[in-house]
Amino acid sequence: MGKHALTAFYGGTFDPVHYGHIRLMIALKNLLNLQRIILLLNNIPPHRANPMTASQRLAMLRLAIAEIPDAFLTIDERELHRSTPSWTVDTFKELRREYGPDSPLGFIIGYDSLLTLRSWYRGLALMDLCHLLVCPRPGYRSLLTNQVDNQWLENRLTNDPQALSQQPAGLIYFAATPQFAISASDIRTRYREGRSCDGLLPSSVQSYIHKHGLYR
């Protein structure tokens, strides 16, 4: 099969988007020489309480992207138009139809998400639709061999970034990206408690949060 460019997708509620998200994507872009990363903004996440409105989170995401000089990030808003919970496998079914059977697609997740993949709605079916680009998360590395089916994992692991462009789906790649100790939940707590969030998220996003009185 001929080589195609890998298109990577990064899903989340981005409630709010912060430097942990942004620096991770920049690191992954450089590591895998990605031409673009597409952000899948969740509308109604199945596994947590409703976040800020979609329009507010979309506005913050657009502000954050505008601060990045290299315009490799774009936003896919399809999940915002659903009235039902956003199941990742359904989104990737749509993406696969749009990109065709031969285009390599990658889904960026953390180690913690890999550990719970079997509990997702048709989570393992994602391997038929995309590659998994797994990024480290604090405290999860040592748990992998205990909680993931070793044979299932070993049959799909690759250490070769080039392999991700040689087939459309089915591989798991552990990306050696830095770990950023920044979380949206901590930022929301800081805002509720009136503590500073300087250095944790872009200044334009901070200004938006203050202007609209979010997370109080």
Rank of each mutant, 00 (worst) to 15 (best):
S204W: 01
V205P: 05
E79W: 00
Q166E: 06
A181I: 00
N42Q: 12
L63V: 07
M1W: 08
K3E: 11
A181M: 03
Y99F: 15
A54Y: 09
Q147Y: 08
P16T: 04
H212G: 07
L143G: 06
I37R: 05
Y10K: 03
G213H: 14
S83A: 09
L105A: 02
N42A: 14
L34T: 10
D90A: 07
A54M: 05
L124E: 11
L28H: 00
L117D: 00
G106Y: 02
L201S: 12
N43W: 01
R156M: 02
V205Q: 06
K3L: 09
P51A: 09
P104V: 00
M52N: 14
I109V: 02
E67Q: 14
I65P: 14
L124Q: 10
I44G: 03
L126H: 06
N43Y: 02
I38L: 11
L105I: 13
R96K: 09
A8R: 06
E154L: 10
Y191M: 15
E193K: 15
N150W: 08
F107L: 12
F72I: 13
D128G: 04
F14G: 08
A66V: 13
Q206T: 12
S113C: 07
C197E: 03
G199S: 07
P101T: 00
V134N: 00
Q167S: 10
Y140K: 03
T145A: 14
D70E: 15
I187W: 05
I26P: 07
I209E: 08
L171G: 02
P202L: 04
T91Y: 07
I108Q: 03
F92R: 09
Q167T: 08
L95F: 10
A59M: 10
N33A: 14
T189E: 15
P16S: 06
R188T: 03
Y208M: 09
A66H: 12
G2Q: 09
S207W: 01
K3C: 09
R96M: 09
F92L: 07
N42L: 11
T88C: 00
G106I: 06
H210S: 14
T84V: 06
L124H: 09
E77M: 07
P161W: 08
G11W: 12
I26H: 09
T177I: 05
Y173M: 01
H81V: 02
P69V: 04
R82G: 05
N150C: 08
E67H: 10
W152T: 00
K29F: 08
R62T: 13
T13I: 02
Q179Y: 04
Y173L: 04
H210L: 14
M25A: 08
L6K: 10
K3R: 13
Y10Q: 01
